[in-house]
Design a protein around this nucleic acid. Structure first.
Lengths: 143, 143
DNA sequence: TATTGTTATACTCTATAACTATA
DNA sequence: TATAGTTATAGAGTATAACAATA
C-alpha cells in the first residue's frame, strides 16, 4: 500500500517538471511531443509505426507531427530499402543541434531545484526514481 | 552541479507519470488540463483569472475549458457579488464525484510502481521530491 | 489478407486580438 | 483607464475512418 504522500509528490513533481519542459519547448517553438520525438530519434533511426508505439499515439498523429517537423527542417523521412511500405525518421543537423540546445536548457532550468539538494541526496533521488520505474512497461517507455 | 542521471530520471518519470495520467483522463473523457482544473477547484472556489494564472494559461483558454466542463455538468460558474466582473468557478456534485474516482484510479495505476519500493524507500522518495520542489515558485504551483 | 503510412474529418487545447462590462 | 471575462480566429495535437501501396 502506497501512502498518499508519495502519489501526491509524484503527481505534483510531474506537473512542475512538465511546466518547465513546456516553457522551454515554447521558447523553441516545440511542443512536448515534438521534444519527445527529437529525443527518441536523437541517436537512432526509427520507423513511423515504432515512433507511434513508443509515444502511445496513433500512426496518423505521427504523420502530422513528422510533417510539421520536416517542413521546419528538423526531421527527415527516408523510405526503407527492406520494406518499401516503411519510412524511417531521422534528425537533420539542425534538428540535432536544436535537440542538444533544448536539453541543455532543460538542465539549466531544473538546476535551481535539483541543486537545492546536496549531491548525496541527488544521487539517492535519482536511484529511487529509477528503482520505482523498473516495473514500468507502458507505452511511454523509450525504445 | 546536478548530474545528468538525476535530470534524466526526472524527465523520464515525468513522461511515465504523464502517460498514466493521460490514459486515466482519456478513460474518463478528461484532458490533463481538465483534471488539473478539477483538482484545483476540488476544495475551494476560484475565480477564472486565478485559475488561468495557476495553470499558466491565457484567460481565453480558461473560458473554453470551463465552458466544456460546464456543458458536461462537472463545473459551474457564479458571478461574484463583490466584483460583478468576476466569475467564481466551483465543481458540481457530479464533478466532485468524478474527481474522487479519477484520483483513486491514479493511485491504483501508480501502485504497481510505487509498491515496488519498500515503505521506507517510498517515504524517502516522497521526502526528496518535496525537498526538491521547495524552491519552486513557477506558475504550475497549486494555489 | 495483413501491415505501413497518408489523408479527410472532427474535436480539444492553446494563444492573440478585439470586444463588453465593470471598476 | 485598467481589469475580468468572452468571442472570433487560427494553428497544433489528437483519434477515427477510409484509403493506397506493399507484403
Amino acid at each position: 500500500m502506497t501512502s498518499d504522500a508519495l502519489v501526491d509528490a509524484l503527481v505534483r513533481s510531474t506537473f512542475e517538471v512538465t511546466a518547465v519542459l513546456t516553457r522551454i519547448g515554447a521558447e523553441n517553438d516545440l511542443s512536448l511531443t515534438q521534444m519527445r520525438v527529437l529525443g527518441i530519434v536523437r541517436d537512432r533511426r526509427v520507423r513511423m509505426s515504432d515512433l507511434a508505439a513508443f509515444l502511445g499515439l496513433d500512426k496518423s498523429t505521427l504523420s502530422g507531427l513528422v510533417d510539421r517537423a520536416e517542413k521546419r527542417g528538423l526531421l527527415a523521412r527516408e523510405k526503407s530499402t527492406q520494406d518499401r511500405r516503411v519510412f524511417d525518421v531521422y534528425p537533420t543537423a539542425a534538428g540535432l543541434q536544436l535537440t542538444e540546445r533544448v536539453y541543455q536548457e532543460i538542465r539549466a532550468a531544473l538546476a535551481p531545484s535539483t541543486d537545492h539538494l546536496e549531491p548525496e541526496r541527488q544521487e539517492r533521488l535519482a536511484e529511487l526514481l529509477e528503482a520505482m520505474m523498473v516495473p514500468w512497461t507502458g507505452s511511454a517507455q523509450r525504445p
